[in-house]
Design a protein around this nucleic acid. Structure first.
Lengths: 76, 76
DNA sequence: TTCAAATGTCAACATATGTATTCAAATAAA
DNA sequence: TTTATTTGAATACATATGTTGACATTTGAA
């Protein structure tokens, strides 16, 4: 089963790398700010649709963001 | 918003390309067979976790399967 | 045609995602 | 220190995902 903590950390790192706040990214993705917070902490697991929109909000190809998760899973 | 029909068709094509039944793929992914049927028809949208496991069940990198969805979205 | 395998579809249900609001706790900047 | 920004956290709620079982329909092979 896909580790929610890993998913959250990859999303958080991508967001911070771009210097964007949760408020901005969640707004662009069209989801609630507290929801993004929960996802980054690994307390909620996003649907594919939500993940797809979060990637786009961070100006990334969804497949590229997912690739980072795969690589991160490999290491752990 | 990510089109559920596109997601379903890409998953179905990947599965049929490998000559695998819904029964086998859903079994390997650890989800219900009727659920996979609904996903392929675009009546249910998978979580990232479910999508990830479906890709692995079809011996694919999840990011590669997602890339196919992106390409399919481009065309439509 | 007949049979078996594969898929579609429905129902009832349990669980999880996602929402909005509110407040506390960090964090950073002045 | 004081202030504003950002994030964590809790609640209650609506909606969607995912499960199991049953049966109908389609498909292909014998």
């Amino acid at each position: 089963m896909l580790d929610a903590i890993v998913v959250g950390k990859v999303i958080q790192k991508s967001r911070e790398r771009r210097g964007l706040s949760q408020e901005v990214v969640s707004g662009l993705a069209g989801i609630g700010r507290t929801h993004l917070s929960a996802i980054e902490r690994g307390e909620r697991k996003p649907t594919l649709d939500t993940f797809y929109r979060l990637a786009q909000a961070m100006d990334m190809a969804p497949s590229a963001l997912l690739k980072e998760i795969e690589d991160s899973v490999e290491k752990s």
